[in-house]
Structure formats: C-alpha cells, structure tokens
Design a protein around this nucleic acid. Sequence first.
DNA 1: TCTGGGGTCCTAGGACCC
DNA 2: TCTGGGGTCCTAGGACCC
Length: 452
Amino acid sequence: MSSPSLAQFALVDGNNFYVSCERVFRPALVGRPVIVLSNNDGCAIARSNEAKALGIKMGAPWFQIKHLEADANLVALSANFELYGDMSDRMMQVVGRFAPVQEIYSIDESFLDFEGIRDDLVTLGKRLRAEVLAATGIPTCVGFGPTKTLAKLANHIGKTAERKPGLYPADLAQVCNLGAEGKQGTARLGQLFRATEVGEVWGVGPRISAQLNAAGVATVADLIKLDLATIRKRFSVVLERTVMELRGTRCIAFDDEPAAKQQIMCSRSFGTPVLQLDELVEAVTVFASRAAEKLRGQGSATGAVSVFIRTSPFRKQDRQYSQSVTVPLRRPTGDTHAIVSSAVRGLEAIYRDGYRYAKAGVMLLDLQPKDLAQGELDLVGGSGPDGTSHDEGRDRSRLMSAIDRVNQRYGRGSLTVASAGTEAVAKSWTMRQDRRTQRYTTSWDEMPIARA
DNA sequence: TCTGGGGTCCTAGGACCC
DNA sequence: TCTGGGGTCCTAGGACCC
C-alpha cells in the first residue's frame, strides 16, 4: 500500500441493478430467482442472488435455461431500459451528494472522490447505502480504496461477503474499505488478496485470466508479486497499470466530466431472420435515425457513416456472411436525411441475396463538434458543396431540433423519415420483448397504481 | 426456433514519406 | 551479389468494461 494519507476513492454500485429496479415495483419478486433478459429476450444480462445460486451465468442463452421457470420458480423479464435509465438518474443524484465530485461510470456505478473528507468512511458508506435505499429502493454496495482498481475490488469484496458468507470476513459485507485494511497492517489485506481470484480484478478478463492461471498466477496475491517489466513484456501495459493500481499507485484518473463520445452506434439483432433488402433498408433507416439523434444529443456532427450486416454465427447450418462498409460524408453533418441516405447506400453496396440476416447496425465515426462543422465559408454564392444553400442548411438544422423535441416528448419514433416504415405493418426485424414490465416512472399510462 | 448492445484503449502491421 | 532506416498515420483486430 502507498502512503496512508492518500485520499480514498469509493465505488458505489447497485446490486443486480436491473433486477433491483424491477423489484422496486414488484415486491413479490423479492426472495425469488429473477433474471432480466437482453433485447430479443436472448440471454440473461442481470441475475438476482437467487438466480446466481441456481447456477445461471451472465449471458446464458434463455432457451438453455428456460426450463428453470418450471423447475425452480425462475422469473424472467424482458429488459426495460427506459425504467432502468430513470432509476439510475435518481440513484446517481443521491449518491452524488456524498462527495465533492462524482464520476458516473455506468448505468449502475459511480466513483466518488473523498479528497479532503475527514469522516470515517465506513460510517459514511453505510449512511449512503441507507439513503439510496430509502430514496429509490435500490440496494447498493460501497467499496473504498486509494485507487479506482482497489475501490472496485473493495466493492467486489463487499458484494461477495454478503452473497457468499465464509469467503471473506462478514464485517466487510456491503461496505468495505481496503484503504483501512492496508493501514491495519498487511496481514488481513494479504488474506483478502489470497482469497480473490485474478479474474475478479477490474481489467483482467477471461483471456488474460486464463493466461495468468496457466503461468501459475491464480490470486491477486500472486499477481501483485509479479515483476512489472515482465508483465509489460509478456502481457501489456494495461495489465501493468492494473498491477500498479492494486499496489496502491494511481494510474487511472478520476474523470468527473466525461468527454463526448468518439463514435456512436445503433445496432440490433432481429426478432426473426431477414432475407429481403427492403426490410434491411427499413431497419438500417431506423438505426441511422436513432444514431443521428444521439449524435445531435451530444452536439456533434459525423464525418463518416459505417453500416454492417451479418448472419447468425450460432446457426452453423446457414451460409455465413458478414460485411461492413464505411461511407465518408462530403462534409460533417448531424442531418438525419444525409446520414440515413449514406447508410442505405452503404447497405445496398454490401447486401447479397440469399442469406438469412440476423443483425444490422449503423456506426457514426469521425465525430466532431457541430459548431466546427457549421463554420464553412460561403464563397460560391450561397450554395454548399452538396447543393444546399446555407439558409436551407439552417432550416434543416431547425427541423432536426424540432424532430428531436417531438420524439423526446411523445416517444421515440413519433416522427421518422419515410423509409423507416410505419408502425401498422408488422416487421420481422423488430425485436421480441414478450416479458417487459411497465415503464413505471417515465410513462403516464404505465404508472403504478396504489390501491387503498 | 431461440445466443445483447454500446463503448474504450492498445497494438501490430501496412502505406507512405524522406 | 547487393536489397536502409526511421518516422508518421491509418486501420483492423483484440482485449476489456458494463
């Protein structure tokens, strides 16, 4: 451990977040094995502790575990991202009140920086948990450490101590401060490190984990003993940084103002295979429109549109095809029409007859601030390179803002470009969501009703 | 029949230049 | 028979995250 005076970071995250969101509005699910499924009800992306205890793995295909519905009282729900996003906003607000700065790292996790805070951190962490629970109904765990990687590890220990009694000391459940463990001498810290497999460390995935194991490195205690230069040579600078962080040296900066995204993607697997070009055009139009909305949402313009289509790699009996193409734009734009038409042109170039397409997507690349894109000089009599006058350009930009406002107010897809197809026609490519719960917090029609 | 979606960073290798 | 070397930029692919 490094100097004991080093301020601490915290990582706060919602336990089994999506499942917990569902349980807030359906308390009968508490205590039961519950999972939330990915889009298309494809595989498990969140699991309650009871579901984990049944042996359901992250990403387990639904059709392989479906029998547990009958055999083990399992409840499976379609993902309700509108609900989770809104619950996340509420949770983040409460968490953010506990420290001067907060970095929202994912939908259910944020880092806090406790620089300059003298309070006892474990006490603070317990109060934080209680307030989040009272305000949102979401149970959380809090991990403290002098580096982000150690805060993540502390959080993992907190969660695991609660879920699997015996592996870690019970007093570390829910709120765990590895900084304090370090100060009390290395004995208990070493014990924690010996009890933790390398694969649990933030930044060590399945590949590296397997390679480390093969080299006889099984636990965090083994990992931090390795020589840094050797790690860099045999693995990567990424793993080297991770090991330094585990030893207490900060390598990963705290980032409370996330930068604009460098690329924006919208892609979906289809509900059923798609064979015809015109259906793919419809899907790609919707994906490109959605990507364009996200683009304008962060105030960017895109310089290139990439589109891809592919068959299902899981269907070994099918002929496989996977192709993508990047279409550069004549000038950076945030205009839905320009983005859609480029995506469709790209699609037409890579489409091949006779395949069962399972997925398509649109990616926006070469992003830059919108203002930069508008700063083009008008030297040739009021007409841009694509033939639109600058007045027209302004009009289109206002049209885009208007479309975004309407869709924000009345729901996604209220206003679309014509090739997106109409709602009335059943589309084979739209995703299946047979088990979605209500949008309790974001749709007037779906609010929970309290009965006397 | 049925296997998610959306990101980041790093590295290696090729193209190109002088 | 000889067949440079070093720099930069770009892209594809791999690894990771949630």
